[in-house]
């Protein structure tokens, strides 16, 4: 019995030592794009091979082993529902733009990234300091997180300090809107 356990332990050790893909954690990598009238999120979710079954159960709601378009879209919505995005203390709702699902075998292998793209729109921001916060509660027991601001493509947005909690589930981005692009008015409600 002891020999069997030792052998199993050695085998597991060898498998761990030479495995070349994500194994026991789900990586959620988010890039945040900030504009004066919207925030764009690029969310890449890569479940490790050892946790992929759990993630697939969430995606494949009818358990038929295939992922339908409706299930793809449903999962995209579920991901976004688990994200609380606030701009200057106002909650922003996120609208899905696209969900790209890799083939099921790739997800099972731990090599497939599920790509969810979304945007949160708002009235054009006034010049000055603003803060965006994001809290990600999607699959917290399985996941590790990365969240980063992209260099802004909007010339009137200056990205400032990024603050994260240790796990990167909680994120705050300070930024400045420096000026209004020519020909655009400032919405006094902002």
């Amino acid at each position: 019995m002891r020999c069997t356990l030792i052998s199993a332990g050695c085998l597991f050790g060898i498998v761990l030592a030479v495995a070349a893909h994500r194994l026991d954690e789900c990586l959620q990598a988010i890039r945040v794009g900030v504009f004066t009238d919207r925030v764009e999120l690029a969310v890449d979710i890569t479940p490790g091979a050892a946790v992929a079954g759990g993630v697939l159960k969430v995606i494949d709601s009818d358990r038929d082993g295939r992922i339908s378009k409706a299930e793809e879209e449903g999962y995209g919505r579920a991901v976004l529902n688990d994200m609380a995005l606030r701009l200057d203390d106002r909650r922003l709702s996120l609208t899905p733009i696209s969900v790209q699902m890799p083939p099921v075998p790739q997800i099972r292998d731990g090599t497939g990234a599920i790509r969810v793209r979304a945007a949160g729109a708002f009235d054009r921001l006034r010049p000055g300091a603003h803060a965006l916060t994001l809290t990600n509660t999607h699959l917290p027991d399985l996941s590790v997180y990365l969240v980063n601001a992209l260099r802004s493509k909007d010339r009137s947005v200056e990205i400032g300090r990024q603050t994260r909690d240790e796990s990167q589930r909680g994120y705050r981005l300070d930024f400045m809107v420096t000026r209004q692009p020519p020909g655009t008015g400032v919405n006094p409600r902002q």
Binding site: E25, L27, A29, R31, A113, V144, Y145, L146, N148, A149, L150, R151, S152, I159, Q162, T163, R164, D165, E166, S167, Q168
Partner: peptide
């Protein structure tokens, strides 16, 4: 020193053309 764990690269394979804000 960033006060959070970094479990992987941000701009690994598949991220051509992206530029993140420096920190």
């Amino acid at each position: 020193v960033l006060g959070s764990q970094m479990r992987d690269m941000v701009l690994g394979p598949g991220h051509d053309g992206e530029t993140i804000q420096p920190e």
